[in-house]
Simulated scan of single mutants.
Amino acid sequence: MIQNMIKEGKVVPSEVTIKLLQKAIQENGNEENRAAFEKVTEIEPKFVLFFDCPEEEMERRLLGQKPGE
């Protein structure tokens, strides 16, 4: 539906956009996104996970490399 509306040059309904953003933030959000989402929607999350590691380590893991590669 969204792709068809965009192809036709129509605006996707706000409710649809908000629900997509809500789902994305809930599934993949970070602390900044969580705080902004909570403030705007007045929805308090049940829990938040935060992973902190160096950028090099994240890149290595995303690329599936072993330490030292």
Rank of each mutant, 00 (worst) to 15 (best):
E69W: 07
M58K: 15
N33S: 11
R34P: 05
K19R: 09
L21H: 01
K39R: 15
E44A: 12
V11M: 15
A36E: 12
Q26L: 01
L62Q: 11
I2S: 06
N30M: 04
Q26P: 01
G29R: 00
E59Y: 11
E32V: 09
R60K: 12
A36K: 15
Q65Y: 08
N4M: 07
E57S: 10
N30I: 02
T17E: 11
I43Y: 01
N4V: 00
K10R: 13
G29D: 00
M5Q: 07
K39G: 08
I18S: 10
V48E: 08
E59Q: 13
N30R: 12
K46D: 14
E69I: 10
C53I: 04
E57D: 11
F47R: 15
G29E: 00
A35R: 14
G64N: 08
M5W: 09
K66C: 07
K7F: 03
E59G: 01
N30F: 01
Q22T: 13
E56W: 15
E59C: 05
R61T: 01
E57A: 10
A24M: 03
V16A: 06
N4Y: 08
K10Y: 05
K23P: 00
I25M: 00
E32L: 03
N33C: 03
F50M: 07
I25K: 00
K23G: 01
F47Q: 14
R61N: 05
N33P: 05
P13W: 02
I18N: 08
V11D: 15
K23A: 06
E55Q: 12
D52C: 11
K66I: 13
I2Q: 10
A36S: 15
E27T: 13
K66S: 08
E44V: 10
S14H: 07
R34T: 13
Q22M: 08
E27S: 11
M1Q: 09
F37T: 07
M1E: 08
L21C: 11
K46W: 00
Q65I: 11
G68R: 12
L20V: 08
R61Q: 10
